[in-house]
């Protein structure tokens, strides 16, 4: 079993390294920092043509053009923000996988917390309502006596 998992991990690891080498190889860098920045960018920028792929994942022609452009800008010393701004100015916020916090994205950013708050409130309300029902109903004096009688009756041999 362990051997199987190890093999699996090895295969996954090899596949992954092959992919990342393939994307980087076509774009040679002398500077490690720039290479890291480039790698970060192409994994954060979304291909407008292919919707749910980064430009690093996508094989579309446009993704290659955008990678080339990113490479060119990074090589010329552009900061990460400058490259992202460049892309957003042309393709809109869609092109970046980290949408900015603004009025149109409030639902996206804060919606989950609102849902969580509503759910917690509902849980609290339900629990509070149920508690009194759980308490043992008190028996009146006559009921107590009757209870004792019944218990005694049960004890006596039949």
């Amino acid at each position: 079993m362990t051997a199987m998992i190890q093999t699996l991990l090895l295969v996954v690891g090899l596949a992954y390294s092959a992919v990342s080498f393939a994307t980087i190889d076509a774009y040679p860098f002398d500077d490690n920092a720039k290479e890291n920045q480039f790698r970060e960018l192409i994994n954060e920028l979304r291909c407008p043509k292919c919707q749910n792929q980064t430009i690093s994942d996508s094989d579309a022609g446009l993704a290659k053009d955008l990678k080339d452009k990113t490479y060119e800008m990074v090589q010329q010393g552009a900061t990460k923000d400058q490259v992202i701004d460049y892309m957003v100015q042309r393709y809109g916020n869609f092109v970046h996988y980290q949408p900015p916090v603004q009025q149109t994205t409030w639902v996206l950013w804060f919606g989950p917390f609102v849902f969580l708050a509503v759910a917690l409130l509902a849980v609290v309300l339900v629990i509070r309502k149920k508690q009194p029902a759980k308490a043992q109903p008190q028996l009146s004096e006559t009921e107590q006596q009757r209870l004792q009688q019944l218990l005694k009756k049960d004890d006596s041999p039949s």
Binding site: P48, K49, L62, D65, L66, K69, R90, Y91, G92
Partner: peptide
């Protein structure tokens, strides 16, 4: 080269 297309935000 598709340079003006990139400036126009063309994706297809």
């Amino acid at each position: 080269e598709g340079t003006l297309a990139i400036d126009l935000g063309v994706y297809g």
